[in-house]
Nucleic acid binder design. Structure first.
Lengths: 210, 210
DNA sequence: TTATAATTTGAATTTTTATTCATTTTTTGA
DNA sequence: TCAAAAAATGAATAAAAATTCAAATTATAA
């Protein structure tokens, strides 16, 4: 009962911080070993709380995992949409998107592993309906990306070599493909520092002849 | 001790058949529910053997899973390499590869789910070194695919818009991307019946101007 | 047909881990 | 400073499966 005007009290802020610490430890563990190979015991030790305390923050293991994935997805989605809604023509938007995608991939490897496992592989969380929620968000995002292609075609910036939605799927797949190859064998596959390495495969053919 | 000249005795053939039946049941279950959500009990019931019998064929659950994945990969790899080594120019080889990829995807959905979980997501089998083995095979296969692009570029059939290895990664990613989208929401994403829908994104820009 | 070997079985054992909750520790406010 | 409330703890419980193995069944061949 410090000040009443402020929304989150000191205690509440402290709780939030603790919650984040648990999620951070859990993210690191889950991404390394997968959902089923991480015990609540381990998460407790890594985050330096007692097992019982975890259950004060999360109803159960599944909910902990779900919250973790959803919160990280929020971050990523917001960042990607920002890139698509930024200034510039469609080429610029795509370039920003690829650049951001590559950057976020590299600086969020633990989550990326988790996300790929969750979206491409078998979901650990079928009961919690997590995969369904993710699929819907992914659909919505691809819709936005397709819009960029669609607008580019409408304005004559791009040639209509394929359906905008197909192009969106293709671009997203290729980015993930490149980054995944790098993640799996960095020695054989160079990290695509320059986003144009990826984008050129699309832009070159897409660009209308001047 | 029937005939000595024949390699696999009647008994041995019977064993093989039983083993296949177990793997078939396991594939169906694993692909539907994921490694950790399938018990040996379930596999036993589905294949109509006793639990103990499973352990006569496979050292443990992990080995059963590993054998399953590896044997299916063998089939796929052989088929894909066939397509790349077939007759025709590089365009024809790529077209055959895409067509075959799409066909095998559709007619082997249970295994495809498993493979994606294993290769894109978190491997269930880190101890057994399965992911490492798969990665090596994938690398080798991409090398072959890159060779096709490389030859096409050398012969002037393709323009060198990117490194052959990058093109191989990109094509493989796009195929998987399209098929995965279809798998996840068939109502929203049409099945790419015509392999050219996928290949055109590559071939159009690649084809040298006549 | 029958003794022996090979195979199959599934109940019992062991292991692993999620979850609970009585107890202890810490914080709060007078 | 102290009693009451809140929070944290982790040993104990419960549940789920993997694995084992003694007993039962089936196949072999003399």
């Amino acid at each position: 009962m410090t000040t009443k005007t402020e929304k989150p009290s000191r205690r509440e802020r402290e709780k939030l911080r603790q919650r984040q610490e648990i999620l951070e430890a859990a993210l690191s563990l889950f991404s390394e070993k997968g959902y089923h190979s991480v015990s609540m015991q381990e998460i407790a030790e890594a985050s330096e709380f007692a097992i019982g305390t975890l259950y004060k923050f999360f109803q159960n293991k599944e909910c902990l995992y779900r919250d973790l994935v959803i919160e990280q997805c929020d971050r990523f989605e917001a960042a990607f949409l920002d890139a698509l809604e930024g200034p510039g023509d469609e080429i610029e938007k795509l370039r920003n998107f690829v650049r951001l995608h590559v950057d976020m991939f590299r600086s969020n490897l633990p989550f990326v592993r988790l996300f790929l496992a969750e979206s491409k592989g078998a979901s650990y969380n079928s009961k919690a309906g997590l995969d369904d929620a993710l699929r819907k968000r992914m659909d919505a995002f691809l819709e936005q990306l397709a819009l960029v292609f669609g607008n580019g075609i409408k304005s004559g910036l791009f040639q209509k070599i394929a359906d905008p939605h197909a192009l969106a799927v293709a671009l997203d797949s290729v980015i993930d493909g490149f980054l995944l190859r790098w993640l799996e064998s960095p020695e054989r596959n160079p990290f695509p520092e320059d986003p144009d390495v990826i984008l050129d495969i699309f832009l070159n053919p897409l660009l209308s002849p001047q």
